[in-house]
Amino acid sequence: MFKMATSPHVHSSNLTAKFMLWVMGAMVPAVAVQYYYFGYGVLIQTAIALSLAAVVEVMMAKLRHKSLTYYLADLTGLVTAMMLAIAIPPYAPYWIIVIGTLTSLLLAKHCYGGLGQNIFNPAMVGYALLLVSFPAQMTAWSVPAELFEHSLSFFDSIWLIFTGKMTQGVDLYQLINNIDGISQATPLDSAKTFYAGFCSVNCNADVAYHSLIRSPIFMQDSDFAQGWWQVNVAFLLGGLVLLYKRIIHWQIPVAILSVFMLCAVLTQLFSSTPHLSFEAQLFSGAMMYGAFFIATDPVTASTTPKGKLIFGGLIGLLEYLIRYYGSYPDAIAFSVLLANICVPLIDQYTQPRLYGTKLGRRQK
């Protein structure tokens, strides 16, 4: 890091583990909201991911002849696993989170040399691989649990994740097939699919909008989907806590949200193609999660003040382009990974002047 950021470097007694504990704590409210709306699945997936991450970190320490807690003590592996677990559908098969966790830690982190050496966000590498390789399982999000005809118990959730069926022999698709809802990535996917099909016959934005929001997954007279805007608000509150504690910097989330909102507002004002409102776009999918928790990864994000703004703005622009004009309804993983590629170039051309030198004098 010292090779990329100019002096003076401020020394601090804060340890990596302390920062990671704050990050995990800031994600707890969002996990609690997900549990409230989607059931025990999110807790089970998180437990699987954290357990496997601990095993992988200890195994890598053993293979590299380090102490058994060498990689485990900084908690970065556990944070990566937790980030991935809350990003996948709560009732996805158990092997989805296993493959994702192994990919994130082994391929995206340890193959580069461990913490501080990886160039891509580990959690998003695992998520992107799962989304591309197993689209059916990764787009099997359930509707809010309150819309289920039968509530899912803890043991039903375990059976559903590990066997694909509940104790009564009912699978997830049978459980929700009588609901006028979705079993897709998010309500963003539902809206994109609906508008595409509707506009092939009649591209009337008002009719399309009012037809879509009659679904019970959306709030009455609103395009805010039940459960999803609450999850995003929880991530927003957790992100504000991290900003207050100075664990993350304001430039990246502000740039992401500002650029995305500007593009979304202009599209809403001047485009004839129907889309969800920009307010719903901001509080749907993984927008707040990506802005405050994913993109702010200190290892793979830009390190300079101006670079952070450019890095965040690039993510916001890519998120807008893929959401509105691409085939994926929510694109935070691809946006972050593409922006990660640009970080060395961004840092190279946004370095502040050297301390004690005249303005305009470049470092050789």
Rank of each mutant, 00 (worst) to 15 (best):
L130A: 07
I179G: 00
G114R: 10
S67N: 12
I346G: 03
L129Q: 02
G227P: 11
S153L: 09
N118F: 14
L43S: 02
L50T: 06
M288Y: 13
T80N: 14
H210I: 00
C203M: 07
Y244N: 02
W159L: 04
T357E: 12
V33T: 10
D189V: 03
L242A: 08
M1F: 14
L321W: 05
L212P: 00
Q137R: 00
G312D: 07
D221Y: 15
C263K: 08
A54G: 09
P298N: 01
Y349F: 15
Q226L: 13
L269K: 01
M166V: 02
T101F: 12
S51E: 10
I86V: 13
F270M: 00
K192T: 03
S302F: 15
A295W: 09
A26H: 00
G113V: 09
P144M: 04
T6D: 11
S222G: 05
L240G: 08
P135K: 08
T16A: 04
L107C: 05
Y37I: 00
Y36G: 05
S51I: 13
L345G: 01
P90W: 01
F311K: 07
M82H: 02
N14F: 14
V10Y: 11
F162A: 08
L15Y: 04
L129P: 09
I158D: 00
Q281K: 12
P89A: 01
P89T: 05
D156S: 08
Q45E: 15
G39P: 09
T186W: 04
H11L: 14
S258P: 07
I252G: 06
P253M: 11
A128E: 05
M1D: 03
F293N: 07
I119E: 03
P253L: 15
I310W: 12
S215Q: 13
S258I: 06
I119Y: 15
M166Q: 14
L147T: 01
Q45R: 08
A49H: 06
M60W: 13
L337H: 09
V143L: 02
I48N: 02
Y244F: 11
L15H: 14
P253E: 13
K109Y: 06
G116Y: 10
V79I: 09
M59A: 08
V132Y: 11
P187F: 01
F38A: 05
A196D: 08
Q137N: 01
Y244Q: 00
G126V: 12
T304P: 08
N204D: 14
Y112P: 11
V98W: 05
Y40V: 06
L338Q: 06
M1Q: 15
W141S: 01
